[in-house]
């Protein structure tokens, strides 16, 4: 059974946005700090650091989760997506990101990466959500700028356009 000593750094390897990555981490290092400081992926933001604010939400093995509530060493072998993985190519936003821009669903942008990762996952499983359900889902995120109204509008708009896109494809 692996025992990783507190005083040493240990190899952590996982798949991030489709690419194999690795780095060294002490057992106590949070996944948020590993992403930002070891891998240099600063798109994932750190807010409250105890799971309440939602800014650090990423996709871990296909589900949205708080990166601050996971040790880097726990992520060894996992498949992760972060906000850097949303845009299909440099200079082009995803449909959800475009909706955020159209609706002014961000102001300071601190909470945005977490909300985008949550909604990206949510809209995949819930292509035609009710506004109430989007609002309940968004209770997992704090935004102090927008008052949430434009975020809800962007989510519903993105859902509608994603449905349209799927229909034209079939």
């Amino acid at each position: 059974m692996p025992r990783l000593s507190a005083d040493a750094r240990h190899r952590v390897a996982f798949v991030l946005n489709g690419r194999a990555v690795e780095g060294q981490a002490e057992p106590r290092m949070l996944l948020t700090d590993f992403l930002r400081h070891v891998l240099g992926m600063t798109g994932t933001h750190v807010g409250c650091e105890h799971g309440v604010c939602g800014a650090c939400t990423v996709e871990i093995d296909g589900v949205p989760a708080r990166a601050c509530l996971m040790l880097a060493v726990q992520a060894d072998g996992a498949i992760l997506r972060t906000v850097e993985g949303l845009a299909p190519e440099p200079g082009r936003l995803s449909l959800l990101q475009q909706a955020f821009r159209r609706h002014h669903a961000l102001q300071c942008g601190f909470c945005t990466p977490g909300i985008l990762m949550s909604l990206d996952n949510y809209l995949r499983d819930n292509p035609d959500p009710r506004e109430d359900d989007v609002r309940i889902f968004l209770t997992g995120h704090l935004c102090r700028c927008t008052g949430y109204v434009p975020i809800v509008a962007a989510a519903l708009d993105a859902a509608a356009r994603l449905r349209e896109m799927k229909e034209t494809q079939t």
Partner: peptide, 21 residues
């Protein structure tokens, strides 16, 4: 804040977890 130092043990069976405890 950040966690204080600790050893991280990954149990692979119930018996291993019981031994550590």
């Amino acid at each position: 804040m950040k966690p204080a130092r600790f050893d991280y043990v990954r149990a692979e069976s119930l018996a291993e977890a019981h031994d550590v405890l």
